[in-house]
Nucleic acid binder design. Structure first.
Lengths: 363, 363
DNA sequence: GTGAAAGCGCTAACAC
DNA sequence: GTGTTAGCGCTTTCAC
């Protein structure tokens, strides 16, 4: 009951060695080109390998050396072009240095992130780049650090994890953009974010995302500098889905003291906010001003085009990759973490609030 | 010159066994829970594992069993939300079945795709899902098939590769949407695609992307049914970057016999096309009608909202995952490949061409 | 230069 | 139930 050729097993070093008439060790040396090998042997071995269509078993190789020439990347939401671009920055840099990149998506779920990190570690990636779902729940990241495998964080901090963080300083750009809004005459400035806090905003609240914390801090500072304070009722967290965002938008724009400007924490939020504003038949920027985080191509297409806060996402990815690779290579002199700057790009969606217009001022 | 604790080596089965006072084999059985183990032994082993913080070396495990409980995914452009959504469909399904998913991006480059597939194969993924960069250069995919590892294709066919393809039938929706445009009175219908053909379009041309082929076929059929033929001068391939797309758009809209409708092959193209139309100060849909492939949220935000051809991308991903997993599990009865249908979603960007309006007709 | 042999951490066949 | 013993495919001493 035997097959003639069980499944055409892949050729191994031993097979190649036999065919070339040399020892396994010599074949391995020629194949992996290390150690000392005579030209004659090398030639015969490579020829044999060719004929047998030999492909090294990377798993076995990794098991011995501990190196896989692979970077692991963990992100929250690959559907967000933000991460797509980040990924390209990482991939391009990694490829140039001879590293492969594998990605795992977490849906911004810390539990899944924990598993993802473990999976990657189990696959023996040489280094890890993580955009942490939470800046507070970070034991699993601390463990990566303790395992000694290089880890670089992107976008967000992670409390208690002594790893480099490649991220924009959101505080200053939030400050600058809020000041701009204040200068236009806005004081009722709203901020809408999906960030899941479990409770409504109050000054001094602690959030999972260091990015959002920074944005709020920047806003608070700008208000403070103007002798005002950020209206707590206009900061809306937990804006989970399109429906809730639209409801929040309606709410912000209703009543006797509505918001005159809305800052959307990401593209998806801006989308629903603008949709609701259109549904309410309000004018942008005549009646409501809009500012959103991240600069996506489509923001130039809306009427009016959206003002945005752009981040050098590709560069952040590239820098992250460069740094993990430097660490992997054992370089002591790791490239200094660059300071990334976000920039406010003014398009048509920010204007003067109705209350500040001449005719309104007269009343 | 010895360290007291060289690097705190990870605990292995042997360590656990020693600590629990049993043989390696028994420890392994308890840990991997297979074979027969007495309650007493199991308890001691698990306790020892706990104390030593034992984590199985998945690499070693994979080397022995040949299984990694991991799906490999290869896509062309992760920046495109299309693939992001596809990825979610895959991940959700895989996770539910206990599989991890790792992704490699190729930038639509066949050479990189070849490497990516090899990397994944080297990592011994149990199955592969590939959105092939080319439907024509497919030897590497054929090799995957021959290696016996389950392979499922998404979005595009791959010539000579006998693997299931999860994709929408683009021909029929292209036919239907073109007929709709014809019924509105358009005959000068343009089609713009990034697809790299090396040469301009001519009827009967062979392209790398089966999807684009189908779209063109559908358009040709609709024209044929109307007793007309697709104007070859309006089919523009090789629209690589934003600049060239804008140049092409300008070109299509100039002259004495301009296009009255433009079909954009993807979101990025639509973006540049619309930008150029706005720059030319032409009215949509008064002077030019627009239709694009893929339904992204932002298409509802432009003025007017864009008519699109929507695909059930998430479902395609889910189905692909389900099928590879079925194959991996050796199920003979693999779920039948569902027929995915794209749908034409009419919004405001398609209208009657100027030439068909009463006043124009009078002239 | 070259080869024999040990070992990476695990699973699996085979005895008892 | 349990332990012994081979491997998996590769790298890496260590002799010669």
């Amino acid at each position: 009951m035997e097959r003639l050729q069980p499944v055409r097993r892949d050729a191994t070093v031993a097979d190649v060695a036999k065919r070339a008439g040399v020892s396994k060790a010599q074949a391995a040396r020629a194949l992996g080109n290390y150690g000392a090998v005579s030209d004659d042997v090398r030639e015969r071995v490579l020829a044999a390998a060719q004929e047998l269509d030999y492909r090294p078993n990377e798993l076995a190789r990794t098991m011995n050396t501990g190196k896989s020439h692979t970077l692991g990347v963990v992100v929250g939401d690959i559907e967000n072009p933000h991460f797509g671009l980040l990924m390209r920055g990482i991939s391009d840099t990694a490829k140039r240095a001879g590293f492969d990149v594998i990605l795992v998506n977490t849906g911004e779920d810390v539990t899944i992130e924990r598993d993802a990190v473990q999976v990657l570690l189990d696959k023996r990636v040489d280094g890890l780049i993580v955009a942490p779902a939470s800046s507070l729940e970070t034991e699993h990241l601390r463990r990566v650090y303790e395992s000694g495998r290089p880890l670089v964080l992107v976008d967000r901090q992670a409390q208690g994890v002594p790893a480099e963080v490649m991220a924009v300083d959101m505080t200053s750009v939030a400050f600058a953009s809020t000041r701009h809004l204040l200068e236009q005459g806005h004081t009722r400035i709203a901020f809408v974010s999906t960030i899941d806090s479990g409770e409504p905003y109050r000054p001094g609240i602690r959030l999972h995302s260091s990015q959002i914390m920074e944005r709020l801090t920047g806003m608070e500072q700008a208000f403070g500098q103007a002798g005002l304070s950020l209206p707590p009722d206009l900061v809306r967290l937990n804006a989970g889905n399109a429906d809730s965002i639209r409801r929040i938008t309606r709410d912000l724009l209703a009543g006797s003291n509505p918001a005159t400007a809305i800052v959307a924490s990401d593209g998806l939020i801006a989308l629903s906010v603008v949709e609701e504003i259109q549904a309410l038949d309000l004018d942008i920027p005549g009646e409501v001003s809009i500012l959103m985080y991240d600069d996506f191509p489509w923001t130039r297409l809306t009427t009016p085009p959206l003002s945005v806060i752009a981040q050098p996402v590709y560069d952040i990815g590239a820098a992250a990759a460069k740094t993990v690779i430097a660490r992997i290579s054992g370089r002591v002199q790791v490239p200094a973490t660059p300071a990334f700057e976000a920039t406010l790009i003014l398009r048509g969606s920010i204007g003067v609030p109705p209350s500040a217009l001449p005719e309104a001022a007269a009343s």
